[in-house]
Write a protein that binds this DNA or RNA. Structure first.
Lengths: 198, 198
DNA sequence: ATTATAGTTGACCGGTCGGTCTAGTCAAGT
DNA sequence: ACTTGACTAGACCGACCGGTCAACTATAAT
């Protein structure tokens, strides 16, 4: 049973890494099984389909994101706006590290799947939309706090949060397209300066 | 020979529509041939591979984009900043029209392919990067003009151009993810207000 | 020791993939 | 009339796709 959890976890991690590095369509179940050192039968014992696995992968991604990025950026030591600036810095570090290891700038795992699959798989689209919605909510909360402590004023908080998320996703996509993490370093800090006025 | 050009054009248009509506991986050569009313033999007479066809599709997309969007938005009647605002409006209209017809918000054709294929096919990545580079150049030129006529000042023009492009791409991706063109209407106008200060 | 159950194995399925190839049509050039 | 070469037709290729299945093993409760 311990071994079983282990197997499931190995499948999940292999799938996460492969799908992020390549894409949903380019990664087959067989490749995931090979990478995880697991046979097809075991795969389908734990996951009913490739689609369901991918939903789990998205959860896994978001969990890690919250643990590794949000947890650090959104500590109380920083002012709200500085949390957003810290987020920008962490985004760069993360992309830079991946680029150093893999040779490719991989962008945002959610944005990648959204772009590829939104029109093809409604369940996947909805899942990604939900995750991005939660990210937006985090930014919104942070902006509310910024307003509350007088760090900013006269802004449309919900719309500004959406704009910041859009800007961040766009930067990740451009960085992937140029295969250059420095794009993130150059552009991301300005995310914290976006203001949609009331 | 006229019929031949016609065949090539039909293949190109079918591929453009199908790849935009679905994705590169989800659209097979057979589907493109069916849609174009052409047999495989003809397809491979005009295009050596699916990859080469896609490069041509990207050219086709960019050509249409310049004809339909840039040509209208960048007319001399408008001030530079108003050209960018017009661009935002056209982006919404375009996404809205597609959504009404297809039931899906398809986002940016270049961004879609970039997200899906950048890590998998260097030629495709490079092509998309080039196209987006030209878009960035258009925005940069417009910002230069805005500076020249005193509409804005104290901005880092090249970086602001990049930031505007990133913001636009991010909005298109979010709209696709939410399957809602209204995201474009809500967020895109603020593109013209982005300023990266010197 | 027996039984039930969770997990594993790998052969196998029909279908689709991008791409090849041979045979043939057709119009223009000589 | 004959040749040439662009274009079309569609059968065919091996590889791979997601998914199924029956048989097997390991574990733990009774």
């Amino acid at each position: 049973m311990n071994a079983a959890i282990n197997t499931r976890q190995r499948i999940l991690r292999s799938a996460r890494d492969l799908i992020y590095a390549r894409s949903y369509s380019e990664v087959g179940v067989a490749a995931i099984c090979d990478s995880a050192g697991v046979k097809k039968g075991s795969f389908y014992h734990f996951f009913p389909s490739k689609q369901e696995l991918t939903l789990a992968v998205l959860d896994e991604f978001f969990l890690e994101f919250k643990e590794q990025i949000f947890a650090e950026a959104f500590s109380e030591r920083l002012t709200p706006l500085n949390r957003l600036r810290r987020l920008a810095e962490l985004a760069y570090r993360f992309q830079k590290e991946i680029a150093d290891v893999t040779g490719h700038t991989l962008g945002c795992p959610f944005g990648n799947i959204a772009a590829e699959m939104s029109t093809q798989d409604e369940k996947l689209r909805h899942k990604v939309a939900t995750v991005l919605g939660q990210m937006e909510a985090h930014i919104r909360d942070t902006l509310e706090a910024a307003v509350a402590c007088g760090e900013v004023n006269n802004i449309d908080v919900p719309t500004t949060a959406k704009a910041m998320l859009a800007y961040a996703e766009g930067i990740m996509l451009l960085a992937k397209t140029r295969n250059d993490p420095e794009v993130v370093r150059e552009l991301m800090p300005a995310m914290a300066d976006i203001r949609i006025r009331t």
